[in-house]
Amino acid sequence: MKNSIKVERAKKNMTQQDLAELVQVSRQTINSIEAGKYVPSTVLALKIARIFGVALEEIFELENED
């Protein structure tokens, strides 16, 4: 699953640490999600979408291999 968290962060001038604190996870977890190494739970994905004020599907997108 690919995502556009990095882009959304850049739009809001937000660091990984800022986002991590807002959704109450570690910076490492945000980094792993951005790098596609970790797929977040539905709850965490919804929290991230809410922070950026966009729909879930605008940030997370299924790939063919999913």
């Binding site: 996870v25 570690s26 490492q28």
Partner: peptide
Amino acid sequence: EKVEDEMIRE
């Protein structure tokens, strides 16, 4: 861990 979030739990 210092931050015991969902990734660490997984």
